[in-house]
């Protein structure tokens, strides 16, 4: 009896400790939520008045900033296009590196891997000049084309393709399967977890991109969500509820992605961390 009581107290203490820590971790998000439901006040408090929560900011922000919908569309178009593009180019290249024996393979593998050593900051100035000269500022192609391939994606998929037994390939070829069909109808379905990992990781990274769109976007309607909310913040410095509402709205897609694809996200991020 006393043992039971002891373990009951112990368990509830553990829950209390975990809840307090969870609350601390979530504090900035709760702070944002709290400010967003306090109405257009100039002196927000840390805790809202729970008797009159004002959720209208989540509607008003779309009226106050008519471009917000456009920013969300932009971010979706760019993130989906980059994700799809990287999946295709990475899968094709990974297939060549994993399944075809061709002269010079170590060299090309090194070229793909070596691109991970070059930090984004060391390429950004010439890339900016190129995109400007092409007249691609304020355009989807300017936001998408530079990110259509990634050495990380090639490397990740190559590892998975290599893990699939080569006998399968030889058997398929004996049965008259062409190499393209082998990639499409055997390798891709078998590597779905790896492809999902790459997809979730790429989508998240592209959605959260800040530096590049900051450089090549001038007009408000071409902004992505990240540039949009930071610009909105500097133009509407004192409208706290709308600032926080817009921030929460653009966080939702990635938060949903976290809940739905936590496993893929985690494995993608830990693998992605290997690049410099």
């Amino acid at each position: 009896m006393s043992l039971n009581l002891g373990s009951l107290i112990r368990t509830s203490l553990l829950y209390a400790a975990l809840s307090i820590v969870a609350l601390l971790v979530l504090l900035p998000l709760l702070f944002a939520l709290s400010l967003s439901v306090q109405g257009p006040t100039l002196s927000p408090t840390l805790l809202p008045d729970f008797s009159k929560l004002d959720w209208s900011s989540f509607q008003d922000v779309f009226r106050e900033e008519p471009n917000l919908t456009r920013w969300i569309v932009n971010s979706f178009v760019v993130s989906l296009a980059v994700t799809l593009g990287q999946l295709i180019t990475s899968a094709l290249a990974a297939y060549a590196l994993a399944n075809i024996d061709f002269p010079g393979k170590p060299f090309f593998f090194f070229v793909f891997l070596g691109s991970l050593m070059i930090p984004w900051e060391s390429t950004i100035i010439p890339n900016y000049l190129t995109i400007t000269r092409l007249g691609w500022k304020d355009s989807y192609q300017g936001l998408i084309i530079p990110f259509m391939a990634s050495g990380f994606g090639v490397f990740l998929l190559r590892q998975h393709f290599k893990a699939i037994p080569r006998d399968l390939y030889e058997a398929a070829v004996l049965d008259g399967c062409s190499s393209t069909r082998y990639l499409w109808s055997i390798l891709v379905p078998l590597s779905r977890p790896a492809l999902a990992t790459l997809a979730v990781y790429t989508f998240l990274n592209t959605w959260n991109q800040y530096y590049w769109p900051l450089l090549i976007i001038d007009s408000p309607e071409w902004r992505t969500t990240q540039i949009g909310i930071t610009a909105f913040r500097s133009s509407e410095v004192t409208i706290y509820n709308l600032q926080m509402a817009s921030t929460i709205i653009v966080m939702l897609p990635t938060l949903i992605l976290l809940v739905l694809g936590q496993r893929q996200l985690v494995s993608g991020l830990t693998a992605g961390a290997l690049k410099g």
Binding site: A96, K105, S115, I118, P146, A149
Partner: peptide
Amino acid sequence: QRKAFGLALLYFSPALLFLIAFTYIPFLRS
């Protein structure tokens, strides 16, 4: 071997061209 190389080139050239255009050349230009 030439054939295998041609085939491989076909598969990895999209990724390679993008990496050359937006990573390697800009890096050298920097």
